[in-house]
Write a protein that binds this DNA or RNA. Sequence first.
RNA 1: GCGGAUGUGGCGAAAUUGGUAGACGCGCUAGAUUUAGGAUCUAGUGCCGCAAGGCGUGGGGGUUCGAGUCCCUCCAUCCGCACCA
Length: 924
Amino acid sequence: MGTYNFQEIEKKWQKKWKEDRVFVAEKLSDKPKYYVMDMFPYPSGKGLHVGHPLGFIATDIMARYKRVKGYNVLYPMGFDSFGLPAEQYAIKTGIHPAITTEKNIKHYWAQLENVGFSYDPDSMFSTADPEYYKWTQWIFIKMYQHWYNKTEECAQPIEELVKVFEKKGNAGVLAATTQEEAFTPEEWKAMRPPEQEEILMRYRIAYLDYATVNWCPALGTVLANEEVKDGKSERGGHPVERKKMRQWMLRITAYSDRLLKGLEILDWPDSLEAMQKNWIGRSEGASIHYEIVGHEERLEVFTTRPDTIFGNMFMVIAPEHPLVEKLTTKEQKAEVETYVDWAKNRSEVERMADTTKTGVFTGAYTLNPFTEEKLPIWISDYVVITYGTGAIMCVPGHDDRDYEFANKFDIPIREVIAGGDLSKEAYTSKEGKMVNSGFLNGLSPMEAIKAMNDELENRGIGKRKITYRQRDVVWSRQRYWGEPTPIIHKDGVTEPVAWEDLPLDLPEVDQYKPSATGEPPLSRAQDWVNLPDGGKRDMNTMPNWAGSSWYFLRYPDAHNDKAFADPKRMDYWLPVDLYIGGTEHAVGHLMYSRFWTKFLKDLGYLSVEEPFQKLVNQGMIQGTSQMMYRHKKTNKFVSADLIPEGEINEYSQLHADVNLVRAQVLDVEGFKKWTKDESAQFVLNEDKEFRTVPRVEKMSKSYYNTVDPDDMCAQYGADTFRIYEMFLGPIELSKPWNTDGINGVISFMRRMYNLFINDAEQFQVTDEPATKEELKALHTMIKQVGEGIDRMAFNTCVPAFMVFVKELGRMKCYKREVLEPFLICLSPFAPHVCEELWEMLGHGDSITLSSFPDWEEQYLVEDTVEYPVQINGKVRFKLSVPADMGREDIGKEVLAHETAQKWLEGKEPKKLIVVPGRIVNVVI
RNA sequence: GCGGAUGUGGCGAAAUUGGUAGACGCGCUAGAUUUAGGAUCUAGUGCCGCAAGGCGUGGGGGUUCGAGUCCCUCCAUCCGCACCA
């Protein structure tokens, strides 16, 4: 048998690819392009495990496939290098995060090279490279220097806005802004610079503002909403508080509508699209201004159910609402203050865990504009200040929360839509007829919404409004290892760092943690912070999201020093045709990337509105941990099959290193060596084995269930490893890692190799012409593989190869005519061995330069006989049936023809393929 | 509660537009061959049944000549969001 020496082959070709620069894309070309990439990894100290390459292998297959399909392919890889782990390691050890990061990147890159990915080496960069983050800072400054014009749906320079203010004031400006008060040109000109600055901040796309933010005391920094899960920090699971702080923010809400609409044209998974839609949370409703009894101010509320306004019995405002103090009457003051204090100090976790209604009456009333009733204004934390106006009109009859609140505080309930039973629960459906509702009576709720909106607008007390759940994103982090915010504070105003001073490098500091007084780590570099002219540098860094928000724009021109990228290259390469990555970035990275792309498009740097045309979420590869049991009293390890079910609690469970376990049996000696505990005692079963119990959980070093791709490549070869990962199932699916089935792939690889090299180590490929049967096997394979790759069902390609190889082996076919096209088909999956065999076949060029074969139908169809058939005396066409079928078989099918005719209305059928008993297919 | 998905042998899974369900691999069974390896080859392997035959894609119903696939409904599991007005 020929020896398939994968180690030698793989090393040889990896070296050759590198030296010959085979995978460097033509950065500008007339050829059709294909841009495919992965979500780049964060280079942690732990290295890659077998879960990471799943998506990478898929993109590599696509890249290699598109190359042999004649495309100019850009397939890059980079590193998302700013981030928490390197910084926390630095705090612990004092080693500069840049050093750790560089070391980790080297390790990652070596691991990736081992698997044989066809990355374009010229495109590689790290987000922590100053030559890269120079442009991250540049984009940030651009955002700072622009505002969002809602009339033109476009970001525009802030100087132009200033000119408008000087000429006309802000009254006619429709902008994404929190500036509500109007001012005249004279008022504007009379303002001092810090006052003007404050107003401009309300317009800038990157702006400073006091906002209630997620403060994580354990991490010493603020976090974005996307980084908070269930009231805890996504990284580390530390508790998060709400705190009012002045922070850099990005006005992503200016783009909410475009971010929502853009989803329609994208080829993304439904679940991801739904998540983004949900996150943006568009809802249509009305804003209504209520008169407050005895006050000048009005109370603005947002509601999606203006139809129910006749059932509005009370109002609730959030504890943080600005009117709280003003509205509270003397009698209620003490009670209100106690409540507001309590609500503020309640942690997010507590609030989420306990949703029973609490609240307090302010003593103030609004007037229901339609019933003229006095409605009490309450305060409750079930109304959140960050959504809508932080105040609601409450209709206890037709809203679950209002219903619960009204019952608790004995507020009357009125039915305004017939159909429910209000003694039991609120009736929230929009089915039924309006009652007790004045001019709305008799209408359906949908009709009533429209009528009420018209009436509100006529009377000038409200108008239709669209509200988004999405909030502006906090873009400051009180951390060291990130891009410094390129802003200087001086005399109460801010100004950007000059272009020629970019990149604004991170300063050296003595320690990486926040200062003793709670200032960000950058405050430790006082020389850097304080400028000679009295200005002070901003001490915040940008969040981890910053670098990844535009890296896909950099790959085509990764080392450009004059611009973030050459516009011609942007036009040629964008959008990314295929982007693969995990679902964990659904609302973070993917939302920001879309936002930054739209912003840069507005400024004229890009011509695309959306960065990622097709997106695929690869599943997570879970680890299969191996659990072993130790008796709590005797401290002996006991083989799992010896433990009676009822006694399991007497044992403690430990993770054994999965690399020491084969088929649920532990290598006891290896275990002793690993734990460095020679005295450990083991109770073995009657087969003298120590059995473990598998448990599927996250792949993590701490569970000792990680498998290093380097080990897989060393043991089985990169090609086998790649095919096996694809063979596990669809890439979208999560599945536990196990190597149980890898022998099937190994034997396939051996058989495949043996088609070329026989048992006597001789090359046995001949130039004989192939038979029809052999060509049928070939073209079946080509069709299945080509279609499989096109719909990214790589798992279905592998069986096609296996069947093909088995059949050729059975037919003893060692013919060039069949084997050459086969190698090209297989090469995206197993590139090394295919290159090697391609070379043996006498080719001087890389297999990458060949072209993917087309399948031909003539080899695939069965021999057929055609019979003329008449249907209902009208449609005549020919019926093709397999040659071994007789007329009598067709006769059985005549019953079906009436339906067949219906299918075929308006179409010109060529043939019906029939098998005994049924019509199989209609070929048009 | 809202939104999204998924449910097929002992296991991972195929079946692209409705057309012989379970391809391919693992595992298992038997045999062959060598002989201690985590080897190779051959045959078998959805379930029930000696068989003929029957039953089978989470449950129930429907459309169709024909349903894993389409429609309705219920159930289970997973993921995301969540007092969003």
